[in-house]
Design a protein around this nucleic acid. Structure first.
Lengths: 149, 149
DNA sequence: CCCAGATAGGGGCATATGCCCGTTATGATT
DNA sequence: AATCATAACGGGCATATGCCCCTATCTGGG
């Protein structure tokens, strides 16, 4: 016996694939909006994580962003090269590297922040603020759920 | 004056960043589960989109997966190299390239399908089936929403 | 004090994604 | 039939991510 209604396509059934599709769609939107600053979504995310000013190690940053530590190291190179972040050996634990925003990095971040907000507004406008916020909060839960490992 | 409760971190506020974090978390889980097959999540997604057997062009595939056309072209190379998919010029429109699963590709897909289901079950078990399904359905909506462009 | 085990990164390699530009093939217009 | 706009790719380049292995440091027993 076959289902009456056509089953959803295989990729629409997969939790991970759906998440990646939605992620690509939204990332493209933010990338477009942020383009004038020369920053990409991921780069913006890194800068915003550093924006409070407290130095963080690569490991801490990776955990906060749910990123692979090595991968984050690579992603920091362009930012360091462009003078937006600084990497300093931690004096107390010389295995660690502290990442901080440079002045230039802060300027760039603040410039991007304005555009970022307009991207956020656009999403809230399309999905509805409460829907978007609830969705985001649920996804933060998924992102931080250690059982999903 | 400062806020009483610590504000959510900047990256937890961003719709796109949250989506990418959750996406990375879940993709890592699926990659782990699929590892024995030598397929990654994205590759599995491509194969599953081809699994119904009807040939699709690179463009159609890209749209279905919310992927950049050029990027998808690159992603197909490893699959073609490993003999899992075949690329043929469309006879009717020779600009187009039809992508189809090879026999080997189908075998691999079916092998991966079993593991994929266990990954799905794991997610459903952690989040709850109805929560996970609703979340996924909402995200499919986001992925397909042309207003988010 | 010394060593075994654990931890933080770096480097290399492979895939993932996207953008831009150039080429080829269609199709609609004149 | 010549023309021109459009569509589908391919190739090159840059960042995004992750994995694995190696090195430099810590750290907690002996």
């Amino acid at each position: 016996m076959r289902t009456v209604r056509p089953p959803v396509s295989a990729t629409r059934a997969c939790y991970a694939t759906t998440l990646r599709k939605a992620s690509r769609r939204l990332t493209a939107l933010y990338d477009d909006v942020l383009a004038p600053t020369g920053l990409r979504s991921t780069q913006y995310a890194i800068l915003s994580e550093l924006a409070d000013g407290e130095p963080v190690t690569i490991n801490e940053l990776a955990r906060a962003l749910v990123l692979d530590r090595s991968g984050l190291g690579h992603s920091l190179r362009p930012l360091q090269r462009d003078g937006l972040v600084r990497l300093d050996k931690d004096l107390a634990d010389r295995r660690s590297v502290n990442v901080t925003l440079t002045e230039e990095g802060r300027r760039r971040y603040e410039q991007a922040f304005v555009l970022w907000r307009s991207a956020q507004d656009r999403v809230a406008e399309v999905l509805g603020t409460s829907v978007a916020d609830e969705l985001r909060d649920q996804l933060n839960g998924v992102a931080e759920d250690d059982r999903l490992t």
